[in-house]
Simulated scan of single mutants.
Amino acid sequence: MRRSRRVGHQPLGRWQDRLCHECRLFFTALQFFTRLPIPGWVGFRPAWLQHCTRYYPLVGWVAGGVTALVYGLAQSVWPQSVAVLLSMAAGLVLTGAFHEDGFADVCDGLGGAVSKERALDIMKDSRLGTYGVTGIGLMLALKFCTLNALPPLGVAGALLLAHPVSRLGSAVLIWRMRYAREEGKAKPLGHRMRDQEFAVAAACGGLPALLLILAGILPLAGVIWAMAAALAGSAWIAWVLQRRLGGYTGDGLGAAQQLSELGCYLGLLLVMA
């Protein structure tokens, strides 16, 4: 009897270990892509960076939740335009403008007709040039205009949808493309995601869409257009990166996230304006 109890407890132990490992992967992604502190028990191993990207869209749940909460609180006190700006500011603080910086670097690196090596050197430079300043300025302005044009409930829904979906757009690049640099901040992420890992990312990125539709916060047609536009943005930057650099970079992942996020807002606006 004692032996059967010990055997019976082994599967539970394995499941507990597996769950703990998946939690560690999520917190590793959260630490890498945001400024949020993580519990001390998580620890760190470089190998975790190679597999935490499956939870990249789940980090978008956190970013979307924070920005939607800030918008909701601010909108109850100030005009919608102010609330939208405050929600955008909260997102920038939360992530340290990580993705926006990548988008600006891609604009600088690929804005001119330069070689692959020169483009990569430009993208490594911490200074911003004309293309980068212009690109990120237009990106932020378009985000503000599209969000401000949505009804109040639609703004909250858009934030909750766009942040996970746009991070799924970046995960697609890791899944289907090779890393273009020999070294760099994203080099630990520069491995091909396995199909099973991408399936987890797709579930994390797609579930909010389903929940928002079922809750009546966003219309089905709006979500379909939003996800189609997000996919188009991700596909376009993937094509540009492949043609110019032969693969993705960390900055390219940031650009994919930004274009996919904007695509979500534009797609929703087509239906909800």
Rank of each mutant, 00 (worst) to 15 (best):
L147D: 00
N148S: 11
A149Q: 07
L150A: 03
L150Y: 02
P151M: 04
P151K: 05
P152H: 01
P152Q: 04
L153V: 14
A156P: 05
A156S: 08
G157Y: 04
A158Q: 02
A158F: 04
A158K: 00
A158N: 06
L159Y: 05
L159M: 06
L160W: 02
L161R: 02
L161Y: 03
A162H: 04
H163Y: 12
P164D: 03
P164N: 06
P164G: 05
S166E: 03
S166W: 06
R167N: 01
R167T: 03
R167H: 04
R167C: 06
L168V: 07
L168S: 07
G169H: 11
G169P: 07
G169N: 08
V172C: 11
V172N: 07
I174Y: 12
R176F: 15
R176E: 14
R176P: 12
M177L: 14
M177Q: 14
Y179D: 08
Y179A: 08
A180G: 00
A180M: 01
A180D: 01
A180Y: 02
R181N: 07
R181C: 10
E183V: 08
E183Y: 09
E183W: 09
G184F: 08
G184R: 05
K185S: 11
K185H: 13
K185C: 14
K185F: 15
A186E: 08
A186K: 15
K187V: 12
K187A: 15
P188R: 13
P188G: 09
L189A: 14
L189H: 11
